[in-house]
Simulated assay, not measured.
Amino acid sequence: MSATITDEQEILSGEAVAIDVQPVGFVLRAAGALIDMALGIVLFIAVTWVQVWLMSEGLLTEHTFRILMICAAVLSFLVLPITVEVATRGRSLGKLAVGGRIVRIDGGAITFRHTFIRALVGVLEVYMTFGGAAVITGALTARSQRLGDLVAGTYSQRVRTPALPAHQPYLPPSLAGWASIADVARMPDRLARRISQFLAHAQRLSPAARAGVAQELAAEARSFVSPVPAVSAEELLLGITVLRREREKTALTNADDRAERLSGRRIRL
């Protein structure tokens, strides 16, 4: 499935559906990078210590020690990050800690090519400049991309987001009596979806806009309700939504029970 970038916070999928994306912020990304840097440095120090011990025991010559030091640097600062990101599909220890994942600009999974470019450029901008180049580019780009991301066409996407509380409409007390006698017909899917979206986001609207949208939706929904209660437009929408939800839930439960009874009869036969 192809995707098109529409702006800095949105990706348009092949079905023309806007997908909201959240890049990892500059501070969190810097914290994750420090963890990854520390891991590479610790590995380099550990390998170097082993080589120094071998040299002190006379098991390594000076020329061999220099060659192995270069190999240790390549292993710690190039091979390690490439291996980890390829194996975890964009999630290193630091990114796991801050809830991020390296993805392509279009939101797809990275490949070895992307990881290799990021790691190769990272040696220059992260280790050789002590992170200075990465800090500058990360602070100046909208998605906190470092130079390696800009070259490879990647960024760090947030994959750990706080769970939003589920919106559960409630039946207003003024409609308790009406609910026992009301007849609410099935509404068009588009209208039902608009009502549900309005109730979920009504508190974010200004009072004037909230009242206007409620009046418009209530005018469309009144033809599916009998009798129409003498309440405000928003209360009417709440009553319709709750009543339809409860009755559809009851209908599904009854259908499941009926299917289970029929299935039991067939088994006995």
Rank of each mutant, 00 (worst) to 15 (best):
L96T: 10
L28S: 15
V103I: 11
F44S: 10
L80R: 06
G107I: 00
L28F: 12
L54G: 02
I105L: 15
L39G: 15
R91F: 04
L78Q: 01
V52Q: 13
A87V: 08
V79E: 07
G25R: 04
A46D: 06
A87S: 12
A33N: 09
D36P: 04
K95P: 05
E85A: 03
L80M: 09
M55N: 07
E62R: 14
F65Q: 07
V47C: 08
R91K: 14
L43P: 03
L60T: 01
G99M: 00
V52R: 12
I67V: 14
Q51G: 09
L43E: 06
A72K: 07
L60M: 05
F26A: 11
V79H: 10
F44Q: 11
G25N: 12
F44K: 07
F77E: 07
I105T: 13
G100N: 07
G58L: 02
A87G: 03
G94R: 07
G58H: 04
I105W: 06
D106C: 00
I41E: 10
L80K: 08
K95Q: 11
W53I: 11
G90Y: 03
V84I: 15
A30Y: 13
T48H: 12
L78T: 00
L75D: 03
G107N: 01
S76E: 04
L78C: 02
G99T: 01
L60K: 01
T48M: 12
M55V: 04
I45L: 14
V84K: 07
M69A: 14
T83K: 08
K95H: 10
V27P: 03
T83R: 08
T64H: 13
R91E: 10
L28K: 15
L43S: 03
V47G: 01
L28G: 15
A38T: 12
F65A: 05
R104C: 09
L43V: 06
L80I: 03
G90I: 00
I105P: 00
D106L: 00
I45R: 14
V50P: 03
L80A: 04
V98F: 08
L78A: 09
T61H: 06
W49T: 13
L54N: 07
L39M: 13
L68F: 15
D36Q: 05
G40W: 02
K95A: 01
V103G: 03
G90Q: 03
D36V: 02
I41D: 04
L59H: 12
L75N: 10
G94F: 04
F65I: 02
